[in-house]
């Protein structure tokens, strides 16, 4: 299973390396969202700084949804749903590989969004260890849900507009928890972040397991 996961992960990374769809489209979109928040809040840096955790995570969520859609599109192009069924490959391995790939891209998106938010909102990202730890766990959680839901939403033709509707409510606890944990980190009260980190960890673990269980059913059904 791990062998399959690594193979799928490597394959997705090298496809992205070739096509650079994420780099050319999703990363700029992330930047656009961050800039739009600046416009929306009338460029008041105090306001922006206060709202930074929430704004940051909203931007990351939309960008991650796009990354998930891209990961699904790669398989769609190759008609891989059928391919993997035909080759009788462990679906949970494929699932893990896809989650790993999306999560890897997600780290890049998060880094870009964090840097641009820090610069544009004129905010200092104190406690980087806590912030990045939260980012990694939240990233895995969203990817774990997103990969299953993207497969669910693929009918006879792809329905991209459906994906955010399905994903965002399900991952809303992650948004809440990650934003609150970041708030605690930025306010230099890291101890307050712990319950939120717990929720994030629980969410990610639960949905990784759920995903591994149902991904095969979704592929076959």
């Amino acid at each position: 299973m791990l062998r399959v996961a690594v193979a799928v992960w490597r394959k997705d990374l090298s496809i992205e390396w070739r096509s650079r769809v994420l780099l050319n489209q999703v990363v700029p979109v992330t930047l656009v969202i961050v800039v739009l928040f600046g416009f929306g809040l009338d460029a008041r840096t105090t306001l922006l700084r206060a709202a930074l955790p929430g704004l940051y995570w909203v931007s990351v969520f939309f960008a991650l949804t796009l990354a998930v859609a891209r990961a699904a599109a790669i398989e769609g192009e190759a008609n891989a749903g059928e391919l993997l069924r035909l080759l009788d490959i462990t679906p949970s391995g494929v699932y893990l590989g896809k989650v790993l790939a999306v999560a890897t891209w997600g780290l890049g998106i998060e880094a870009v969004a964090a840097a641009s938010a820090a610069i544009l909102f004129n905010a200092a990202l104190v406690d980087p260890l806590l912030l990045s730890g939260v980012a990694v766990v939240a990233d895995v959680g969203v990817s774990a849900v997103g990969v299953v839901l993207a497969q669910l939403a693929t009918g006879e033709r792809a329905s991209e507009s459906l994906l955010p509707l399905l994903t965002l409510p399900v991952v809303s606890p992650v948004l809440l928890a990650a934003a609150k944990a970041w708030q605690a980190g930025l306010a230099r009260t890291p101890s307050l972040a712990f319950p939120w980190v717990e929720i994030l960890l629980a969410f990610s673990c639960i949905y990784l397991v759920v995903g591994m269980l149902v991904y095969g059913i979704v592929l076959e059904g």
Binding site: V145, V148, L149, L152, G155, L166, P169, V170, S172, P173, L176, A177, K180, P195, W196, I199, A202, F203, I206, Y207, V210, V214, I217, V218, E220, G221
Partner: peptide, 26 residues
């Protein structure tokens, strides 16, 4: 396929409810 997928979705949503409750409560 619709049956299977919407059922999977219903279960994913169901699993989500306690997590949502806990997080919004906190």
């Amino acid at each position: 396929r619709r049956g299977v997928r919407s059922a999977v979705w219903a279960l994913i949503a169901f699993v989500d409810v306690p997590i949502i409750n806990q997080s919004v409560y906190w």
